[in-house]
Simulated assay, not measured.
Amino acid sequence: MHRYRSAQSVAILAGALVLSGCGSAESASAPSASSSQSASSPSSSPAATASPTQPTEEPSPTATPEPTATTTTYTTADGILSFEHPADWTVVDGPAPAAGSPAEVVSVVDGTGRTMATLTTGYPGVHDAAMFSPSQPTELDYLELPAEQLPLVFADSVNAFNYQLIYNPNTGVTGAVMSINNLRVGSDHGWLRGIDTDAATGAAFSRWIDGTESLPGVDPGLAGSQEAYAAYMATPEYQAVKTMLLSLRTAG
């Protein structure tokens, strides 16, 4: 299989695996007694009222945010990955992975039960997967991770944090996604794939923001617009989620 095959051939797989975790925290189970699950991104969300946003010029990378004062470390049950999250956020099991998928999923929820991110591990072929196909992304934030933090499986790639506004013309859905991805060097970042944990297995760590979601610190009247997603970047919640995503590393 060619490593960067067309996203059209893998859209269904990625939609199920990378986007399946954007449901509310109510659907997640109680906190896991063992760290045996991992998480994905949502596969669908209600159509937003915002108008489609066309790609714009890619912004310059931003500085790595400072860690929060009090954090807790979560390590996956297989001992492969770990990350830091605010101590008042909780890792819970679920949502359930796509039917027939070997993936395991956990969600990180805040004190009010809102899902701040999902982590999915154990599904195949991340380097062949796409988050949307086709999609029209506008990159709002981008920062590469040190290679020693999350070692690269493929030499011609880089692991990076992406924050994109995305419009999917196939579904009419507008939203934004904060995620960690393995990207081919020189790629346009149009297809977000998650990360590679080995040559055949992948993981995804992301936060999906539905176009109708009311974001703390952002004018509700801007919901679903590029202005809202840009304003969200200045909020403490965005910085906390970004710091958490950027902390993803190889455990041990």
Rank of each mutant, 00 (worst) to 15 (best):
S60D: 11
S60R: 12
P61R: 08
P61G: 04
P61Y: 01
P61D: 06
P61C: 05
T62K: 12
T62R: 10
T62A: 13
T62F: 13
T62I: 12
A63Q: 13
A63C: 04
T64F: 09
T64M: 13
T64K: 11
P65F: 09
P65Q: 05
P65N: 10
P65M: 08
E66T: 15
E66L: 15
E66N: 13
P67T: 01
P67I: 08
T68Q: 15
T68G: 10
A69E: 15
A69V: 13
T71S: 15
T71Q: 15
T72Q: 00
T72H: 03
T73F: 03
Y74N: 00
A77H: 14
A77C: 14
A77F: 11
D78Q: 09
D78G: 08
D78R: 09
D78C: 01
G79S: 12
L81Q: 04
S82P: 01
S82Q: 12
F83K: 08
F83E: 04
E84R: 12
H85E: 00
H85A: 04
H85N: 00
D88W: 10
D88V: 05
D88S: 10
D88F: 05
W89Y: 07
W89K: 08
W89T: 03
W89R: 07
W89P: 08
T90W: 01
T90Y: 04
T90G: 01
V91T: 08
V91I: 15
V91E: 09
V91M: 03
V92G: 05
D93T: 07
D93I: 05
D93Y: 09
D93K: 03
G94A: 03
P95Y: 12
P95L: 13
P95S: 14
